[in-house]
Design a protein around this nucleic acid. Structure first.
Lengths: 336, 336
DNA sequence: AACCTCCAAGAAAACGTTTTCAAGACAATA
DNA sequence: TATTGTCTTGAAAACGTTTTCTTGGAGGTT
C-alpha cells in the first residue's frame, strides 16, 4: 500500500505539500497540486486512517449498541442509522447486549477503545452509571432515555401510543381491559404502563388488570393461559409488544375464544409481520426507521458542529394501526 | 486519557518496559512488573489501538457486508457472526448493499480503509471483480459463493434443500409443480433453480413451470395473480423464499383456492414468522445463525493462524419444515 | 537601494505505540 | 582474573500522518 512518502517522492515534493493538497488546508501552487493529484491517482493512494486518528482526527466511526438484532423491532432502526451514517461517510460498529447492563458496559468500553467518534445507545436499564464515568465520546440515546441524564435522545411518545390504544378500545366499547407487559424498566415500558394506569384511574378491576412476563410469544401465551385458568374477566388485551400479542392470540384461539368478537387484542411495535399474521394484528406503529435516521443525524451534528449545541430531546409520534384483532371487519365496515 | 508515557513515569520505568509488561513480549523483573501493573490500574490506562494498528498490529475489527439487515433472513446470521466475534474480542462493522454490486464495492474499500483484519461478505452478484484487485484482507464468503474464486465460504446446500421440497411434494402426490423465483444470479438461487430443473427433466409442463419476479411478498402476489389469470394448471407452488410464499398464499386465498387441499405452497428460508403465518408455512429451514457462527470462526482462524491454511468450503444442511401449507392436517395425522 | 510583508514549500516535531539495538549487571566458565 | 553468556532494561527508530516552525524568494513601500 502506497503511503504519503511514495506520493511525495513521485511528485517531487515534500510530504507536507502532499498533506496540504489532500486536506486543502493551505495554498499550494496549481502546478504542484496537479503533480500531487496525478501521483495520488497513479499510486491509488488512500491516507491511512490510523495515522490520522493518532493525530486526533476523527475516525469517522460510530458505535451502535442495541439489545438484540434478532428482535424484529431493531433491524429497521439499525438500517435507518446506517443509511444516514453512510451518506455522511461514517461506518458503524454494531453490538448486542441482550439487555444485560453488564455486557452493555463492556461493549461501551470496547467501542470507546476503538476510538469511535460517537455512540448511539439503546440502553437496557434506567441507570447507566458508566455514561457519567468517562464522557469521552458524544452519546445519543435511542428508543429509550434514562432519567437524570441530560444526553440527547430520540424516542417514541409511548404515552401517546398507549392513549391511542385505550381510546380505540373505549370507542369500540371494551370495558375490561387487561395489560400484558414485561417487568423491564425501560423508559418506554414505564411510560406505557403509567399511561395505562392513569387512563383507568379509579376503575375497580385495575389491580387485577396488569400482568408481567417477558417480551416473547411464549411469555404472551403463558400469561394468557394464566388469565384463562384464573377465570379473569376481560374483553380486551393490551400487549407490551407484538410478540406477546401473538402468544395471546394463539392461546385464545386454542380455547375457542373469538377474536375480536369476544376479546380484542392489541399489540405494540407493528413489526413487519404483524400485517401478515392471521388475524392481522391491530397494533401501534413505531417509526423505527426514522428513529434511527434522526438519531444518526443528531450524533453527527453533535460530532461535527464545533459549538457546544444544546442537547435535544425528540419524541416521535406513533400511529395506531387498526387491523383485525381489535374490531371485526363487519363492524368496521358499518362504521366506515 | 493516560498514555504509556504517563504509566512509565508513574512506575519509574521506561516506556519499553511498560510495553513489555502489557504484551508479555519479554521478561520483566517481578518488582517492576508489579509497579507497572499498579500504575496501569491507577491511571486506568488502556493502550491506544490506533497507535498499535499503525505498527501493524491487528485492529481486532471485522467487516460484515450483507444485502439488507431489514431482510428477515439476515438478523440471525448477523447475530451468529457477532456472538463468536465478540467472544474472540473482535468488533464488527456492519454494511448494507441492497444487492447493488457498485455499492458493495464502495463498502468494501471503505472497510479496507478502516484497516479491518478480515471481511465477511454476502456477495450480491456472481462476479465480484474487486476481490481480485487488492487482496488486502482475508475474506470469507457467507451464504453465497462465487465461481472461479478460491475464497473460503460457508453456504447452505440449496441443491439438497430443493430436493427435500420436491421429494416431499412428490410424496404427497403433487404432479404439476410451479416455481416462483427471482431472476437474481446468486449461487443459492442458481442452485435451487438448477436443482428444480433437473428434478423435472423430461416432464412436459416444465417450460411453463418457472416464473421470475423479486424476493418480496408483493412480487409473490403478482406472480400468482398472473398464474391464475393465465389459467396455468398447477397443484403446487415452490417459492424462492418465504416472502414470495406469503404473497402467493394471500392471492390464492383471495381467489378461494384452498391451501393445501387444492394447492400446496412451500417457502424457503424459514424466517421467524413463517411459523406464525396462517396457515403455517411449510418451508426449508436455513441454519442462518450457524452460518454466521461458522463464518466468523473461519475468518478468525484465517487471521490468527500464521500458517497459510487451505481454503475451506463448507455446506450446511437445510431441513424441510412441514407445516400446514403443503399437506392438510387431517392427511398428515392419518400418515403419522 | 534597503527594508518589510507575505506566500509557498520544506524540515522537523508530534501523536502513542512496538521493536530493534545497545548497554549494564551479574553469573558461570576457563 | 579474564572471557563469555544471559538477563534485564533503557534509548531510539519506526509506523503514516498533521501541524508547527523555518526558510527563501517575490513583491511592495519608503
Amino acid at each position: 500500500m502506497a503511503n504519503i512518502k511514495d506520493v511525495a517522492k513521485m511528485a517531487n515534493v515534500s510530504i507536507s505539500t502532499v498533506s496540504r493538497v489532500i486536506n486543502g488546508t493551505a495554498n499550494v501552487r496549481q502546478e504542484l497540486r496537479k503533480k500531487v493529484m496525478k501521483a495520488i491517482n497513479e499510486l491509488n493512494y488512500r491516507s491511512n486512517p490510523l495515522a490520522r486518528g493518532l493525530k486526533g482526527f476523527p475516525t469517522r466511526t460510530l458505535g451502535l449498541i442495541i439489545p438484540n438484532i434478532e428482535n424484529p423491532f431493531f433491524p429497521a432502526m439499525v438500517r435507518g442509522v446506517q443509511d444516514v451514517a453512510n451518506r455522511n461517510g461514517y461506518a458503524i460498529f454494531l453490538c448486542n447486549t441482550d439487555e444485560d447492563p453488564q455486557l452493555e458496559e463492556i461493549q461501551y468500553f470496547l467501542l470507546l477503545e476503538k476510538k469511535i467518534d460517537g455512540l448511539l445507545l439503546v440502553v437496557s436499564s434506567m441507570n447507566v452509571s458508566f455514561l457519567d464515568k468517562e464522557p469521552h465520546a458524544p452519546v445519543v440515546l435511542l428508543d429509550r432515555y434514562v432519567e437524570n441524564s441530560d444526553l440527547s435522545y430520540v424516542v417514541v411518545d409511548h404515552k401517546m401510543g398507549m392513549n391511542l390504544v385505550l381510546k380505540h378500545l373505549e370507542n369500540i366499547g371494551r370495558k375490561k381491559v387487561v395489560f400484558l407487559g414485561s417487568k423491564d424498566v425501560t423508559s418506554g415500558a414505564k411510560e406505557r404502563l403509567e399511561s395505562f394506569v392513569e387512563y383507568f384511574k379509579g376503575v375497580a378491576n385495575l389491580k387485577t388488570g396488569i400482568f408481567f412476563g417477558e417480551y416473547s410469544e411464549k411469555s404472551g401465551a403463558y400469561m394468557t393461559q394464566k388469565l384463562l385458568s384464573k377465570r379473569i374477566d376481560f374483553d380486551a388485551i393490551v400487549c407490551g409488544n407484538d410478540l406477546i400479542a401473538f402468544g395471546a392470540i394463539k392461546v385464545l384461539k386454542n380455547h375457542g375464544v373469538n377474536i375480536p368478537d369476544d376479546v380484542s387484542v392489541v399489540g405494540y411495535d407493528d413489526i413487519f409481520f404483524s400485517a401478515y399474521h392471521s388475524p392481522k394484528l391491530t397494533t401501534v406503529h413505531q417509526p423505527t426507521y426514522e428513529l434511527g435516521e434522526i438519531a444518526a443525524h443528531l450524533i453527527i451534528d453533535e460530532i461535527e458542529k464545533k459549538e457546544h449545541e444544546p442537547k435535544k430531546h425528540i419524541r416521535l409520534e406513533p400511529r395506531l394501526i387498526v387491523r383485525e384483532t381489535s374490531i371485526s371487519g363487519r363492524i368496521k365496515n358499518v362504521n366506515s
